[in-house]
């Protein structure tokens, strides 16, 4: 990894930093609104795990949901914007390897996801001070989940050639995956069919494992979540790298 890689990474960071009102502040507001509404409406009525308040359950789920959505949004929107505007040509003309190209986009996406997560967590902490069961699990799932989502964003950005194609990814894949991921509820409260379907959602494992780091309780073992999130991240990265190497939709 050389200067070309660090430049592309830096450019991607600068890109979202220059519009931080939209990329960092807007997700903070929307996530806090979820937190206020759900914790007020359900806080007194719902207890997911014994001895754990609904707010303590909800905050990690919302933080992870915001990280997943924003990591995906960063890499996918940057790629599709530069494809539509034609400015991707400047990156493609450069002597960058496929791994440098992929890593720069994914790492910038991870950074945005992590920044959004940190800001949401700190702000929510003023109202609902979080408990920390295991910092290591929290960090592991932070990095793996944003990596997974960033890689998925690169895949979507490589595939999409128009904004409406990207909107389809957002509306028909990312939104359902993040909302049906146990951010607001425990999997055990679902009917058997939805419980079964949710077990195929990697975002569920990202949220469940991340939440375990805070409250020390989870729907499935954090090791199982680690295995599934980690292997999904690796598989997605491998598939995206293979597509990039083939030149598919990027170097036709």
């Amino acid at each position: 990894m050389g200067v070309g890689f660090t430049t592309l990474f830096g450019k991607e960071v600068l890109r979202f930093w220059k519009v931080s009102f939209q990329t960092l502040l807007a997700p903070l507001i929307s996530t806090l609104l979820y937190l206020v509404v759900f914790s007020q409406v359900l806080g007194q009525r719902v207890s997911v795990y014994p001895g754990v308040s609904y707010a303590a359950f909800l905050v990690p789920g919302l933080v992870m949901m915001a990280m997943l959505q924003n990591a995906f949004a960063n890499s996918s929107s940057s790629l599709v914007q530069s494809k539509v505007s034609g400015s991707l040509v400047f990156v493609l003309l450069a002597p960058l390897s496929v791994i440098e190209f992929f890593s720069a986009y994914v790492l910038a996406a991870m950074l945005r996801g992590l920044l959004v997560g940190f800001v949401v967590l700190v702000t929510a902490g003023f109202f609902f001070p979080p408990q920390i069961h295991s910092l290591l699990w929290i960090l592991v799932f932070c990095f793996l989940a944003t990596g997974l989502s960033g890689a998925l964003g690169v895949l979507a950005g490589v595939w999409a050639e128009k904004f409406d194609q990207m909107a389809a990814w957002q509306n028909f894949l990312i939104l359902p995956l993040t909302f049906l991921s146990g951010a607001f509820y425990s999997l055990h409260s679902l009917p058997p069919l939805w419980h079964f379907i949710s077990r195929f959602n990697p975002f569920f494992y990202a949220i469940d494992g991340f939440r375990y780091g805070f409250i020390g309780a989870s729907d499935v073992s954090p090791w199982e979540s680690l295995l599934i999130v980690g292997s999904t991240c690796l598989a997605l990265s491998w598939a995206t790298l293979a597509l990039l190497r083939s030149g598919w939709r990027v170097r036709p």
Partner: peptide, 19 residues
């Protein structure tokens, strides 16, 4: 084609960095 996020100097510095 151009990247609307950057100034002229930033654009040239970024392109230089890619190389």
């Amino acid at each position: 084609v151009f990247d609307p996020f950057f100034s002229v100097r930033e654009t040239l510095r970024i392109q230089s960095g890619y190389f």
